[in-house]
């Protein structure tokens, strides 16, 4: 079955508008996941859904040639379109990242997958003369990072790569 030949202008236009929105929402879900609803899994599924929309509306070749910009040839070891090879790499990398965060903890002598977090605040010493410096640098630019987020990124890659590989192979049939 091939998609993209018989879609209407309406579908194409709507897809063009919604796609960036969906992707931005997905990324924001990924980033806010630690404190607000969201997370790597949800963001990953949403991203995959966005790509599914592109497949259906614009077709597989469009994705292959326009988004990845190449005539990448698969080595024949996988079924379906060439992008499957890239998706396979993607979820491999995701697994490696997730496992890597676990191993990272071991490098510090902690058990596998121990996570840590830290709040980084820029020093306001030299900018104290700016009105509201405390608020701007102490609250607005405060950066709270957690290694668990790296793990979440791994989850995100695996979900995106895995689902898109399945979609591409099944859709390519």
């Amino acid at each position: 079955m091939s998609y993209g030949d018989d879609t209407t202008v309406i579908a194409r236009t709507v897809a063009r508008i919604t796609l960036p929105l969906v992707l931005v929402v997905a990324i924001s879900l990924l980033f806010q996941g630690h404190n607000l609803p969201g997370g790597g899994f949800i963001a990953g599924v949403l991203t995959a859904a966005a790509f599914a929309l592109v497949y259906i509306v614009f077709g597989m070749e469009y994705v292959q040639e326009t988004i990845f910009g190449d005539e990448y040839e698969p080595d024949g070891s996988v079924a379906g379109p060439a992008v499957v090879d890239r998706y396979r790499t993607l979820f491999g990398v995701g697994l490696a990242v997730a496992a890597g965060t676990g191993l990272g903890a071991m490098a510090f002598g902690k058990p596998f997958l121990t996570h840590t977090d830290e709040v980084v605040k820029p020093s306001t010493e030299y900018v104290a003369w700016i009105p509201g410096a405390d608020f701007i640098f102490g609250t607005l630019f405060k950066f709270h990072w957690a290694t668990a987020f790296l793990f979440d990124i791994g989850v995100y890659f695996v979900v995106v790569g895995g689902l898109l590989a399945i979609l591409a192979v099944v859709g390519g049939e």
Binding site: P37, L113, D117, A146, D152
Partner: peptide, 24 residues
Amino acid sequence: AGGNNIVNVILVDFRAFDTMGEIA
């Protein structure tokens, strides 16, 4: 774990090993 979203904290920190298995 430095997170307010308990669901996510469970997934990526408290029970990260389970999640690891799931993504595998």
